[in-house]
Simulated scan of single mutants.
Amino acid sequence: MARDNEWKNLGGLVFSTNPDVNLNQQEEEEETLDAADQKLRIWLDRKKRKGKAVTLITGFEGNDDDLKSLAKSLKTYCGVGGSAKDGEILVQGDQRDKVLKFLLDKGYGQTKKSGG
């Protein structure tokens, strides 16, 4: 069964005529910076959301598991829904003050509100 799942780890590459292609290469996990070293920005965004406001946290540097863990903590703290992908966290509604307080309490010292 393990052999069946090996092709899924190749990122869609099934065959190549290039002799330099390494089919056994694994993607390296991006290392997550410490909380104090993260430079996060908190925005209020209404674009492409039919006028609904969302709080957008950008600038997270690290792997997806840590991003999703932080997003889950933020959503639980604020009591709302949201999502996390591509280094950004979306929290439903205008939660900028709550998010800023939460992140500063967790040690994200270089966190700032940005935008209007």
Rank of each mutant, 00 (worst) to 15 (best):
Q92E: 11
L104D: 09
V21M: 11
E88G: 00
V54M: 02
G11P: 12
V80K: 09
G115S: 11
I89P: 01
G81E: 14
L13N: 11
E6W: 12
V91I: 15
G116D: 11
G93L: 08
G87Q: 02
L10C: 12
K85R: 10
T111G: 06
R49E: 02
D4T: 15
E88Q: 10
K106L: 00
A35D: 09
D20F: 15
Q110L: 04
D20P: 07
T76Q: 14
V91H: 05
D66G: 00
S69P: 02
G59M: 00
R46Q: 08
G109C: 05
L70N: 11
G59Q: 02
K106A: 01
K39G: 03
F102M: 00
L56W: 03
R41Q: 09
Q26M: 09
K113A: 05
R46V: 00
D86E: 07
L13M: 15
W43E: 08
G81I: 10
K8F: 11
G62W: 06
A35T: 12
V14F: 15
T111F: 09
D65L: 07
D97W: 05
K48N: 04
T58E: 09
E27Q: 08
E27A: 08
D4W: 00
R49M: 06
T55W: 06
D86P: 01
Q25I: 04
Y77H: 13
G93N: 09
D20I: 12
G82Q: 05
V14I: 14
R49T: 13
G59D: 02
K47W: 02
A35P: 05
L23H: 11
G82E: 12
G109S: 13
M1N: 08
G115F: 02
Q38G: 01
E61D: 03
E28T: 11
Q38V: 00
G82T: 13
L104K: 14
L56D: 04
E6F: 11
A53G: 07
D66S: 04
T32D: 06
G12T: 15
K113R: 06
G12H: 14
N22Q: 12
K75V: 09
V99M: 01
L103D: 02
T76C: 01
K101G: 01
D105S: 09
E28W: 04
G109E: 13
G87T: 09
Q92A: 10
T111P: 02
N9Y: 10
G12I: 15
L10H: 14
Q92C: 04
K112R: 08
W7K: 15
L33Y: 06
P19F: 14
N24F: 10
Q25P: 05
A36Y: 07
D4P: 02
G107D: 11
T111Y: 06
R96F: 00
K68L: 04
C78T: 11
G109K: 14
A2W: 13
K48P: 00
K106V: 00
G87W: 06
V54R: 08
R49A: 07
G116W: 07
E6V: 14
Q110S: 09
N5W: 12
L40N: 03
A2F: 13
R96S: 08
V21L: 10
S114G: 08
E28G: 07
K48S: 03
G12C: 14
G11T: 09
D64M: 02
D94H: 11
L74M: 12
K101S: 08
Q38F: 01
K113L: 09
K101D: 13
K85W: 05
Q25M: 12
G87K: 01
K112D: 07
